[in-house]
Design a protein around this nucleic acid. Structure first.
Lengths: 89, 89
DNA sequence: CTTCATACCCACCAAAAGGTTAGTACCGCC
DNA sequence: GGCGGTACTAACCTTTTGGTGGGTATGAAG
């Protein structure tokens, strides 16, 4: 559910609140638009991320963490902590 | 380093002390011998696992966690904790 | 009537991961 | 001499993942 190259990075960006697709794209520099949309779709299917469509033109869509998505925060933090422990060893 | 289908399962089995290849194989029922050896090789290269060869015939080899490998324990535990939180939601 | 911006889709391709099957070497055992 | 047990290797294949380059719709602005 959080595997693959991008999902954890996306979830981390959503820590601070809702973001639009374009904002996500610019904070995760190396991701392609297709991958971003594709991964977001999976995250939405797994109900870790909420997608809000404002039905405007030009389109406006915002992504945010669901309650379930919030549950992943300690995991991300532990991953960062592990990386730090590992590098010191 | 701990990604992929098997590495975390292998590391978890080594929690309790050294195990021989055949013992690992039987505690991780669905893994093929090739995958087990291949993944162990990567874990040894990353110095998370120690490989001890007793130089006997028939061959006897034991795998155990290194100090670095011990560092991954909290991460595994947090992953399990996340899975439990997730299932309750 | 062309251009722009936004979110998104589709067809295709390349690389990585995972898997199957067959084989190796060694020695003891019957 | 053939068989079993052990750790391991090699060749090959399939599935999954990641990536590229194009296209869509809409309405406003020029």
């Amino acid at each position: 559910m959080v595997g693959g190259k991008w999902k954890l990075l996306i979830l981390r960006q959503l820590y601070g609140g809702p973001l639009r697709l374009s904002a996500l794209r610019s904070t995760i520099p190396d991701i392609s638009e297709k991958m971003l949309i594709q991964e977001l779709k999976i995250l939405v299917e797994n109900r870790l991320v909420h997608r809000e469509n404002f039905g405007e033109v030009p389109p406006r869509v915002a992504y945010s963490l669901t309650d379930r998505g919030e549950l992943v925060k300690p995991l991300i933090e532990e991953m960062i902590a592990f990386a730090e422990r590992y590098e010191r060893t």
